[in-house]
Simulated scan of single mutants.
Amino acid sequence: MRTLGIGELARQVGMRPSALRYYESVGLLPSAERAGGRRVYPAATVRRIALIKMAQRAGFTLAEIRGLLDTDADRGATRQWRALAESKLPELDRFIRQTQILRDAVADCLACGCMNFDKCQLLSAGGPGS
């Protein structure tokens, strides 16, 4: 089985070795084997970290991710993932709406063209026409 030293793994996944050690300490990564006193990980760890990063981008907490990764049985993991994903969707929808509002505000400022923050009507307490 191919293994990766912590430095090589860190480079491959775009993380610092200290972050990998942290992931190990909080149970996101299994304890690394030691070779000559150095941590070595199975090559499959790259895929596990990709899953962790994807889940983080989707807004899952490290505790939620750990719970998913700790589930041994495939059916249990599938059921748990489905429940967690279904509960996360409304949160993501709220985030998307809030981000769209911010995006629209920035676009409105660009369209205004005044770029004078002291006098811009868009930035007044009530917005334009108040």
Score class of each variant (00 low, 15 high):
E64C: 04
Y23Q: 13
V40W: 03
A35Q: 14
L28V: 08
G27I: 05
G37C: 10
P30C: 03
R48W: 02
R79C: 09
P42N: 10
L68A: 07
F60P: 05
A77R: 15
Q56S: 09
E86I: 03
R79V: 13
K53T: 06
T71A: 15
E86H: 06
L62Y: 12
R75W: 03
G76M: 07
R75K: 09
G27C: 06
A32F: 01
R48T: 14
W81F: 12
M54K: 11
G27R: 10
A77H: 13
L62H: 10
L28T: 06
R79Y: 02
W81E: 02
K53F: 00
A55P: 04
P17W: 01
L29H: 06
R47P: 00
E33R: 10
Q12H: 02
R16N: 08
K88F: 00
L69K: 05
L29P: 11
S25P: 06
L62R: 08
A50Y: 00
E24N: 09
S87Q: 15
G37V: 10
G36R: 02
P17N: 01
R16G: 14
R75G: 12
R47H: 07
D72G: 14
A63R: 12
G67Q: 02
R48K: 08
G59R: 05
R47D: 11
V40D: 07
R47G: 15
A43N: 02
S25K: 12
T45H: 06
R82Q: 11
I65G: 05
L89T: 08
Q12I: 14
G67H: 03
S87G: 14
L69V: 06
G76H: 07
P30M: 08
Q56F: 00
M54P: 00
A43G: 01
D74Q: 13
G67L: 11
A43E: 15
A83H: 09
L84Q: 10
L69H: 04
A55S: 09
L28I: 09
S18I: 07
L69F: 01
A19R: 13
M15Q: 07
S25A: 09
P17A: 14
A50D: 13
R47K: 11
G59I: 08
L84F: 01
G59W: 09
R75Q: 15
R82V: 05
I65S: 03
D70Q: 14
R47Y: 03
R21T: 11
E24G: 05
W81V: 00
R82W: 09
Y22V: 00
